[in-house]
């Protein structure tokens, strides 16, 4: 396990150095919620509840002596929920794309997920590809395939297991560090300025795009 320490959720007041909004996306059943619960509560329940719509957890971690508050958003995988979940892509600094190494279809769909990210997320969001359930013997997607896809998409890649607690902390710490580096080198905007805020004269009924500044 990594030598990074984590500090459990804090209360009021600004007792942290930065906030990072992080999103988990991917097909239904790949283990997004299990990864999150493993990371935040250090538990694994094989019949964890279905996520409907969107869910939210918070965890404060310490990286290089800095306290970082991770805002973690868990999303529903079923296609129809994308209308809702993509509304939360805005302002996300990190996005974790998860597939199931025992289910090729979820791996093939990563390209689709990647596309929704390029359409809805900030340009400078840091992405990470995760192949979950690495503990299973019945894998159908090899590590090399994952590697290849990650190179093609130009994003880092980890295989993990929420069940065995393999690489789970690494997912979140790696991502947080990468984001921190971006912030430090001033590449990332800390506000929620999504990319499509230039000429936005559409009016397809939704109003979610307004009050986006603060």
């Amino acid at each position: 396990m990594s030598g990074l320490r984590s500090v459990s959720g804090s209360t009021n007041g600004k007792n942290y150095d930065s906030i990072m909004k992080i999103l988990l996306i991917g097909d239904s059943g790949v283990g997004k919620s299990c990864l999150l619960v493993r990371f935040v509560d250090d538990k694994f329940n094989p019949s964890f509840i279905t996520t409907i719509g969107i869910d939210f957890k918070i965890k404060t971690v310490e990286i290089n002596g800095r306290k970082i508050k991770l805002q973690l958003w868990d999303t529903a995988g079923q296609e129809r929920f994308r209308t809702i979940t993509t509304a939360y892509y805005r302002g996300a600094m990190g996005i974790i794309l998860v597939y199931d190494v025992t289910d090729e279809k979820t791996f093939a769909n990563i390209r689709q997920w990647f596309k929704t990210v390029t359409e809805h997320a900030n340009d400078d969001a840091q992405l990470l590809l995760v192949g979950n359930k690495s503990d299973m013997e019945t894998r159908t997607v090899t590590h090399e395939q994952g590697d290849e896809l990650s190179r093609e998409l130009g994003i880092p890649f980890v295989e993990a297991s929420a069940k065995n607690d393999d690489n789970v902390n690494e997912i979140f710490f790696t991502l947080a560090k990468l984001i921190q580096e971006k912030i430090d080198s001033n590449q990332i905007a800390t506000g929620g300025n999504a990319k499509d805020s230039n000429i936005n004269i559409n009016s397809s009924g939704g109003s979610g795009s307004k009050s986006n500044c603060c």
Partner: peptide, 12 residues
């Protein structure tokens, strides 16, 4: 102070 996005804050 925990949210940069007002919509996220209210929703949560």
């Amino acid at each position: 102070s925990n949210f940069e996005n007002q919509n996220d804050l209210i929703n949560v």
